[in-house]
Design a protein around this nucleic acid. Structure first.
Length: 575
RNA sequence: CGGAGUGUAGGUCAUCGGUAGACCGCUCGGUUCGGGACCGAGAGGUAGAGAGUUCAAUUCUCUCCACUCCGACCA
């Protein structure tokens, strides 16, 4: 239905104060009658909110279809065996929500649907001639988030558009991946959002690389670094940077131990020895689910990035160890050293240890430090790689630019999956030209609709309320009648309303008997692109013919003008 | 899951060992009508649930539940 009387609309604006500390988008969407919270992280989308949601959906669908993808839908309850098949039934950090039916059959409430889409594909006989294809759905996803927050930004239940591509090989996939990246950029651009493709970590989804589509925002949860020219744009989890050589021209000095009465912090070490922070050896102890210990060692002025550490240590879960664990390996908190611990822990060294000589730090005993520690000579790591976290002001790998840390909201994500799923799941194969069976090379692509909606509000609002971009506005025009007590203005409004409707314009008519001030305030909150007013004033400006003159005001502008209804319709048809 | 906190009317909050109030909102009547109008009348609460202490519990204690914030975690 393209038109609506505000008096009949379910979900009115809510006046009064809301709990403080909420995000602007959450406040405005709640106050203006778009959403209502059910339980933590689960929301009702009210009629107004659902219209916006559906409009976002339409844009996504148009662009996905244009890119050759095909919409379908999979069951929400996923047979649990599928998740066991890919070993994701007990992946750490991703608690699956489960349900059991009367006969005891177990299902997972899907938080993502790679297995389901592979499963449907393998039910068909597919040849290389059928490839490539990309199938997608809009469906409710369940995430057992430890903590929902930020209104619609991080929820436990939400509609996601998830797409899955099936290709013959990596080369073919890369074309699809690039096409999806462009499609996503286009989708968000149409929605009014400027996005950046940020290289990120695949996490439990698997695969080797992925990009987050991020909208820069000071409260976003994605932290990424960007170079001045924008050529480098990486999530801090994976961001690479230059580790400049420090004192590589120094001679190797003999290892020795000295008494060191100090506290446990790095700063106290610097003070005691009078040596630079970067020459200090930083040791961070981690443990996995089974209690196996990993010692991450890195140059003192850098910090360990846990996502990178997982990759280098080939672990799938690590958490900081406790002081008891430190004692267990015969060391002392604040005085850990890799020297002599090779047999007790898995040592993971950052490549930065190659940029410095004669390092100092603890010696595994309280108040005992070691001087002139050197990699290879004094300790040998089991793994060595880049485990350092990028930080503001660091240099790009080639040393030509400075990196800046930024925050953003991740509205979409595209993943290379490769053979990650098709090798684990049997029969996920097609018949190639030479008649042999080969696994699909996959990718997957997601967009959270509610989060996108909230992000749009974050970007498009002022102190008076929301200001929807035309494409997603629930209605195009907000018609206000001033003077409900007068027969003339009411009948005039009714006619304007009818004519707009007949012209196919989506119009919300505030026909209530409320004060003008309240109607204006509500209109600003709701945030439709154009506000139309019919009143005694506009009536007087016409020649007395009903439905002739209407006041026109755009939400983003201060000026209002009184124009012919025909002109109103003409303008609304072209915005 | 660790730390902190909150649960009283539809919303925001007050009160207090003797079973509850304000403001906003809502309903009705009247007056208003170009930036959240005014007057009058009215409806609305088993004080999150359970247990305990007490002559008496919304108030004190305990347990549970829900929610918020910080952390951890996380397309």
């Amino acid at each position: 239905m393209a038109e609506m009387k505000y008096s009949k609309l379910f979900g009115k604006t809510r006046h009064g104060v809301l709990r403080s500390g909420e995000l602007v988008s959450h406040q405005l969407l709640t106050k203006a009658g778009y959403i209502r919270e059910s339980t933590a992280g689960r929301y009702f989308f009210l009629p107004l909110g659902w219209r916006v949601h559906e409009k976002i959906k339409r844009v996504i669908k148009e662009e996905m279809d244009r890119a050759g993808a095909q919409e379908m839908v999979a069951p929400v309850l996923h047979p649990f065996e599928l998740w066991q098949e890919t070993n994701r039934d007990n992946t750490t950090g991703f608690e699956l929500m489960q349900v059991t039916d009367r006969s005891g059959r177990q299902f997972a409430l899907g938080g993502t649907a790679e297995e389901m889409f592979v499963d449907v594909v393998r039910r068909f006989q597919i040849s290389h001639k059928d490839l490539p294809f990309n199938i997608y759905q809009f469906s409710t996803k369940f995430r057992d988030e430890l903590r929902a927050r930020g209104g619609l930004l991080r929820v436990r239940e939400f509609v996601m558009k998830d797409a899955y591509s099936f290709d013959r090989d990596e080369a073919a996939f890369k074309i699809e991946y690039e096409k999806m990246k462009q499609t996503y950029m286009t989708i968000f651009k149409r929605l009014g959002l400027e996005t950046k493709a940020v290289e990120a970590d695949n996490g439990y989804i698997g695969g080797e690389y992925c990009h987050e589509l991020v909208v820069e925002h000071p409260l976003g949860e994605s932290h990424y670094v960007e170079s001045e020219d924008g050529a480098v744009c990486q999530h801090v989890d994976v961001a690479k940077f230059k580790k400049e050589a420090k004192n590589l021209n120094d001679d190797l000095l003999p290892y020795k131990q000295v008494e060191a009465v100090r506290g446990k912090t790095m700063e106290e070490g610097v003070k005691l020895h009078g040596l630079p922070l970067w020459q200090q050896l930083k040791d961070v102890l981690y443990k996995d689910k089974r209690g196996k210990l990993f010692l991450a060692i890195i140059r003192g002025d850098l910090s360990v990035g846990e996502a990178k550490l997982l990759h280098v240590a080939k672990a799938d879960y690590l958490e900081p160890a406790e002081d008891e664990d430190v004692s267990r390996i015969g060391s002392y908190p604040g005085f850990i050293s890799p020297v002599g611990l090779e047999d007790k822990v898995t040592i993971v060294a950052d490549t930065s240890l190659r940029t410095v000589k004669n390092m100092y730090g603890g010696a595994n005993k309280q108040n005992l430090d070691a001087l002139n520690m050197n990699i290879d000579r004094d300790f040998k790591p089991h793994f060595e790689g880049d485990i350092a976290q990028a930080s503001d002001g660091f240099q790009t790998e080639d040393g030509t630019q400075t990196l800046k840390v930024k925050r953003g909201i991740e509205v979409g994500n595209i993943f290379q999956l490769g053979y990650h799923y098709t090798q684990k799941m049997k029969d996920a194969v097609f018949v190639d030209k030479d008649g042999t069976l080969k696994p699909y090379y996959m990718g997957c692509y997601g967009i959270g609709l509610g989060r996108t909606m909230a992000t749009i509000v974050e970007k498009f609002h002022d102190d008076k309320g929301i200001n929807w971009p035309t494409v997603v506005a629930p209605y195009q025009a907000h018609l206000i009648t001033i003077g409900n007590n007068e027969q003339e203005t009411m009948s005039h409004s009714e006619q304007v309303y009818r004519q707009l409707t007949q012209a196919g314009i989506e119009v919300l008519w505030d026909d209530r008997e409320e004060s003008p001030g309240k109607k204006f305030a509500d209109a600003d909150w709701i945030g439709l692109p154009v506000r139309l007013v019919v009143s005694a004033k506009t009536l007087r400006q016409g020649s007395g013919q009903a439905g002739e003159k209407v006041e026109w005001k755009e939400r983003t502008k201060d000026a209002a003008e009184v124009i012919d209804l025909a002109e109103v319709i003409k303008r609304l048809k072209t915005i």
